[in-house]
Each structure stands twice: as C-alpha cells, then as structure tokens.
Design a protein around this nucleic acid. Sequence first.
DNA 1: CATATAAATATACACTGTTTATTTAATAAT
DNA 2: ATTATTAAATAAACAGTGTATATTTATATG
Lengths: 220, 220
Amino acid sequence: MSPRPHRERQIPNLHERILHTAWQQIAAEGAAALSLRAIARQLGITAPAIYRYYPDRDALVTALIVDAFTSFAAWQAAALEGTTPHDHAGRLCALGLAYRAWAVAHPERYQLIFGTPIAGYHAPLEITMPAAQRGLSLLIQVLAQAHAAGKLRPLSPVPLPAVFDAEGVDPQVLFAALTLWCYVHGMVSNEIGRQYPPVLRDAEVFYRHALQTLTAQYLL
Amino acid sequence: MSPRPHRERQIPNLHERILHTAWQQIAAEGAAALSLRAIARQLGITAPAIYRYYPDRDALVTALIVDAFTSFAAWQAAALEGTTPHDHAGRLCALGLAYRAWAVAHPERYQLIFGTPIAGYHAPLEITMPAAQRGLSLLIQVLAQAHAAGKLRPLSPVPLPAVFDAEGVDPQVLFAALTLWCYVHGMVSNEIGRQYPPVLRDAEVFYRHALQTLTAQYLL
DNA sequence: CATATAAATATACACTGTTTATTTAATAAT
DNA sequence: ATTATTAAATAAACAGTGTATATTTATATG
C-alpha cells in the first residue's frame, strides 16, 4: 500500500469529515466509545493521519463540544423566532422547551457537554466557556427584557448577596437566569441520564408542568 | 514467581480491599482513570485475580456506585439528626446543604453517580435504582411530614397532571420532592462540573441563597 | 528538472479489559 | 498419611486504545 494516495483518492475537507464521522459514531455508539482509530477506519485512513488536523484526542473532543454548543445555541435562537417580543412568559417557556427538545434529540451531544463521558478529558475552559455562554445569554436576554418591562417577580424574601461580577446586567436577572438554568438542567440531565425514580411515569409531562409552574413563579 | 502466594502473604478481605483501592485511585486521579490493572498493581496482585471477585469491570463500577449511594444516604440521614421534627424548613435546608456538602467533599463519587465518567459503562438499573432511591426517600419523607402538618405550599396555578405511580404518597409531595431534587442537583452538578459562567463568583453563597429562596417558596 | 514541502503511512510503545490454560496452596476424603 | 479435590492465584496472549517517531511519496515551487 502506498504511503500516500493519489489526489483523486484523497479525501477533501478531511478536517470536517473527521468531525462528521465522530458525530456519526457518537450517535451510534455513545460519546464514551469515541475512538480515533475507529474514525480513521471508517474514513479509510490511518489513525496518525488525524494528528495532522487535531494535535491529540482532547483537541478533537473540544472541537466536538464547541460544535455541540453551537448547535444548542442555534436551537435556542430558533425557539424565540416564533414568539412575540413582549410575550415574556411565552418566550421563557419556548426556551425551556427547546432546551429539553435539543437534549432529547441529541442525548449524546448533551452528555458530551454536561456529562464527563471521555476518559481523562478536561475541557479547556477558555475555549468551551465562551461557547457555553452563547446558550445562556439568550435566557439572560429574555429575562432582562421582562425585568425592564417590570414583569420579573422578586424571588426571595431576603436580599440577594453580592455573588456576581455583573457588568450592566441586573443581579436579580442573573440570579433568575442561573437558577432557572440549574432547574431545567437538573430535570433534563436526570431524564437523559435515566436517574428519575420509576414512580415518575412521563418525564415530558412532568417537565412541561414544572416549566409552567416556574414561569408563573418567576414572571408577573 | 510462584503462581500463588503463601497464606501469610495473601491479602485478607481482598474483595473489600479492591473497592478501597479503587476509591483511593478515583480520589487521586478521577473516576475516569479507573483501571483494573492499576488497582492490581497497587495491591501487588495481577489483574485477572480481580475477576475472582468481580466478573468484569462494570461489576466493580456498579459496586462502587452502590457504595457511593450508601455514603450519600448516610450523610442525608446524619443531616437530619441535629434538627427538630417540626422544623420543616430547617430540615429541608439541612438536607439541601448536606447534598452539596457531600458532593463537594467527594466530587469524584458525585461524578461517578451522576456523570458518566466510565467509558462504555451502563448501570444495571435494577441494582442502582434502589440504592439511589434511599437518598431521595428522606427528602420525600420530610416533605410528607410538612404536607401532613399543612405546611406544604401549593406550587402551581394549574392542576398537577397524573404523572406518578404513587402508592400512599401524595402526588403534590412527590412533585415537590422531584422538582427540589432536580433544582439542587442542577446547581451542584454545575458547580462540580465547572459549568458555571465566570460571572458567578461564589457558588456556595449562591447555593445557600437559592436554597433559602426555595424553602420559602415550598413551605408555608 | 531538481528541490522542498505537505500529507499520509508504517512501525512501535505503553497502556487497557479480558480470556485461557496452568500452577500451586489449602482442604477434604480415603 | 497419602491422595484427590478445590480454590485462588499467575502467566501468557489477544484485541483494542492513544500517541510518538521515522519514512515515504505526491504535489507544489524554484
């Protein structure tokens, strides 16, 4: 076998083809089964060839994570498109439903981001945090609009301690955003991770009801 | 080297020593780095020897998970000991604080249970669910007591759909328990998994304030 | 046409979980 | 006391992994 194939047999856009193949295998076998050698096999190349495009496995995983966050942020943005700007409850609900819908549609991507399925992988926060931020920023935006309209209900009987390095964003808005996100994340990760107890029959109905309760709690 | 050591050199309680060594290495290197061979090395035995006690790696992981759940349930139970039976808010708060305290004290155990750090591992739910249940049952118990005392605030403006296979436990209690658990789990898993955005300075203060807000929302 | 570069391969190393056959210490039976 | 049995470990090997190094060759450049 020749050490380098003719140009006709070369794979164009190998950089993206590797990512695409990785997603294919993650969807089929789960994120934990990610293997450079398996990707190489499917592409008809050898494993070290991947190192031309990604310095190591972790770099590939990071690229996948950024990819997933981008996909997630797109879903979030799309969810707001069908809503009217002043229907704060509707927009909040839409974001919440889109959050779960994306996770259910792509459970492996969800686990890749929020679980820790890759052995020994530690995310470089300077790369993944900005990508993650984009998803959260829409929620903050919607809540900030509700706050500006005076529709954000004061949540706590006691004053909020100074826990934020806020720049222009109201701490109450940040607190509402983070708590809502944690809530929703907890429900979705329990559903995707099959952690719910058997007494819960329908996780989706449960989720919708919880979301309805939440919007009523957070908005006037 | 002889194929079997003399009795004096044999390791007693190897079954438990394996678990203990596994926890040691998980604490040092993270759950993802779990390795049968590394455990064997540290114990001065060969890797296949472990197979006398655990049929495969997944069985060992399952034993570790059950172990972790047991430890967690013990912390939850201990948290209630310093409280008085009718101080429902205090008891709820104690459970919530204990939840986070356990996770912060044993982040690897937490990730092992709720993350998915072991490549290719799928938990046998018939074994892990009952163990997980024990932790949740205390929360349900506390909320049921509050409900019996008429101190559980009705949460939603709309009626709760029938999503539970409840046996003797009020659906409102179950709903409150599950939502509270999801909320707390979301916050803790975001903290442990370093998913919080940098604007949040102090995750512990944030958690305490959220918990305080929650108890006020859930209890009268 | 000669040279330099880029992109792949081949090979090898140190790991991993797991299977098989083998060896031996301890125990039970005669 | 000797023999047979059983239990618990080892040794060796297999297929898989990520990754480093050296090599080869197709292509682009002077």
